[in-house]
């Protein structure tokens, strides 16, 4: 059975995925890795690939095709082709939920809302403007200000009794707001929940979150409570694939697998 790989070089994390299957729709994830992108994208790409191969128990030669995506997609010298992370996230989301979708990817540096029709074809996509508001970088910055590990955010938000309202778009202004709330003695969980709400509000401002909403990306992976909050805000369950942070890498691997199919079957990622 064909084996392909995808390498997603994001601004903060590099993700690698190795998949195997007759066709993309029935492919299985057999190896994966997540590591920091650092400053040498080519190196982290190779390391990520090797780790994913090790998990799959495979030699590199067994992989028939490799696609890269993400911010550093051009730095993966062993990938045959590149795709945007938009194509990759869409492919992965549709693979898990084959129907008309709105994919919300909250990444380290940017957010995307991608709409797909019931055949998995893109109808539209939007990326956030050039600003960290509502992205993983925003939460990182706030964690730093609050002197709390980012990994504690989810638990803190979940335990909140109340919630503060963050008023500003701007990361810097938000930091000032956070300090003001701390001075006032606001409980930390309420503050963190307010930050989560702010992230989701930015996403809801980007586009209508209609159809079935699927959340992908590292922020969703590390903060399952965010998904619950989103579901509550849109009034229906928002879904997430099994390993949302891997969506880009998995999608790139799926697109690589797609490209191995005879031409007539390649048009778009059918289930």
């Amino acid at each position: 059975m064909p084996i392909t790989a995808g390498i997603d070089i994001g601004a903060s994390a590099t993700k690698a995925a190795v998949i195997q299957g007759e066709v993309p729709a029935r492919a299985e994830l057999i190896g994966a890795a997540v590591l920091r992108s650092g400053v040498d994208f080519a190196l982290s790409a190779r390391q990520g690939f090797e780790l994913a191969l090790a998990e799959a128990g495979l030699e590199a030669q067994r992989v028939e095709r490799i696609f890269s995506c993400g911010y550093g997609r051009g730095n993966v010298d062993f990938a045959q082709e590149t795709r945007t992370e938009i194509a990759a996230h869409a492919a992965a989301a549709f693979r898990h939920f084959p129907r008309a979708l709105t994919v919300l990817d909250i990444g380290g540096q940017d957010n995307k809302v991608i709409k797909l029709d019931d055949q998995g074809r893109r109808i539209s996509f939007k990326m956030n403007r050039k600003c960290a508001a509502g992205t993983g970088a925003f939460l990182e910055e706030m964690a730093l200000r609050l002197n709390v590990g980012l990994q504690e955010f989810d638990g803190l938000a979940r335990s909140a009794r109340g919630e503060v309202t963050m008023g500003s778009f701007c990361t810097v202004f938000s930091a000032t707001e956070v300090l003001a709330h701390i001075r006032k003695g606001v409980a930390l969980p309420d503050l963190v929940k307010g930050l989560f709400r702010s992230v989701l509000k930015r996403a809801l401002e980007m586009d209508n979150l209609d159809q079935t909403v699927v959340m992908t990306g590292g922020v969703a992976a590390h903060n399952p409570y965010l998904l619950e909050m989103l579901s509550e805000m849109i009034g229906r369950p928002a879904l997430t694939p099994p390993r949302p942070q891997l969506a880009g890498a998995e999608g790139a691997a799926l697109l690589a697998m797609q490209s191995l199919l005879p031409r007539c079957d390649q048009s778009h990622p059918r289930p």
Partner: peptide, 16 residues
């Protein structure tokens, strides 16, 4: 660049 590439991908998907 990412926006333009993704737009071309989208046009390609629609043309397919």
């Amino acid at each position: 660049r990412t926006n333009m590439e993704a737009f071309a991908e989208q046009l390609g998907e629609q043309a397919a």
